[in-house]
Design a protein around this nucleic acid. Structure first.
Lengths: 200, 200
DNA sequence: TGTACATCAGTGAACGCGCGTTCACTGATGTAC
DNA sequence: TGTACATCAGTGAACGCGCGTTCACTGATGTAC
């Protein structure tokens, strides 16, 4: 319709990506329909192909955007805490009933589907995930760099697993307990990842 | 075609469920097509509705069957190990490259989708999962019953998260490292779940 | 013992629906003369 | 300064395909007489 300045197209595209990321968290990759996403963006489905070559193209962007969202909130939480409390701060911020009952997190809700996506989607996701891990690593308490990356991997894996299971389970008590237990215990794994607990 | 003894129908149904569980692990719930599953069972798609009222019906059964498979292998592994080594034995048996590169495990590959399934599917899944956790709990090292269940929850959540992420990631090195780190460190979380590591 | 009928797992063509994608078109703005 | 044309984000009807589901039919077996 109206002719806009050059940045406008990029902004619209960004908006579609953000809406898609949320829709995918809620309904899954297949369940997030192009027409619904475009309607939520205030457009009609035909205009989609002005911004993306295919749904796959959008999926790759939206997965990446979802990871970026998750990263931003975790990094903020960790940075605001004292070095020794950062792991626990992440656990407390992430493993909440609110996050479980809301859309959740891209990692927990979509990782299973991403594993089955075309390679370029998985690569885009992996890039962004790797960058997130690198952003979190310096905030971990271990003394050397490699150990800090180990700590992040242990932390993130465990958080994601707990969120995933607590969302799948149709039993409030069990679901709550999964979150609570992991919130209390994952710190132990992260501590071991610093080398302290290595038994062998 | 041929008229079979009464048990035959039940056997065919079981076969379809097993084939569906494997297909779902590989292709996801939506990706596992009724016609493909029936073909693999040696039948045509029309006969499906002699055994199930809908695909949902099959999905519920197949999710449950997938959890039962996972439970059986973990319980066997744990029981064959000395009490103190059971947690590590589960980690070593589960977090393998082979399992990652093969279909994986129902929990890691399907939990994200299960969270979006109709309630009766989620309930069926939850029943079977709860039973699995109860079957594993007595094999955990903590002294009291509640703590043992906590240990199982911590163990399973972390294993599932690590498997999920290692499957999603399109970078061999990172994927391997996720498995390796969790194999080494999740024991720390499980130990804390026994009450030993509680700092507060 | 032989014949007619009921049963029921299984067949495969056909249906309907939803979703991604295409395409001819619109209309507001920028640009050339 | 005014007019004709190019551009291009966006529209919405239509297409094609795949998948779950239905349904009239098959044919082997069990059962009643």
């Amino acid at each position: 319709m109206t002719r806009y300045p050059k940045e406008h197209k990029a902004e619209i595209r960004q908006g579609i990506v953000a809406i898609a990321a949320a829709a995918m968290r809620r309904a899954g990759i297949d369940g997030a329909r192009v027409s619904d996403i475009m309607r939520k963006a205030g457009l009609t489905h035909g205009g989609f192909y002005v911004h993306f070559t295919s749904k796959d193209d959008l999926v790759a962007e939206a997965c990446a955007a979802g990871v970026v969202d998750a990263r931003a909130s975790l990094v903020d939480v960790a940075r605001d805490a004292a070095p020794r409390d950062r792991v626990q701060a992440c656990l407390d911020a992430y493993l909440t009933r609110q996050r479980r009952d809301a859309a959740g997190c891209t990692l927990a809700t979509l990782a299973g589907e991403i594993a089955r996506q075309p390679l370029h989607v998985r690569k885009r996701f992996t890039e962004e995930l790797a960058e997130s891990l690198e952003a979190l690593a310096p905030l971990m308490p271990a003394l050397d760099e490699e150990r800090r990356l180990d700590q992040v991997l242990a932390l993130v894996s465990s958080m994601v697993g707990a969120m995933l299971l607590s969302r799948a389970v149709a039993d409030r008590k069990l679901s709550d307990r999964i979150l609570d237990v992991s919130r209390r215990t994952v710190g132990g794994a992260v501590e071991w990842a610093s080398g302290a607990g290595s038994r062998i």
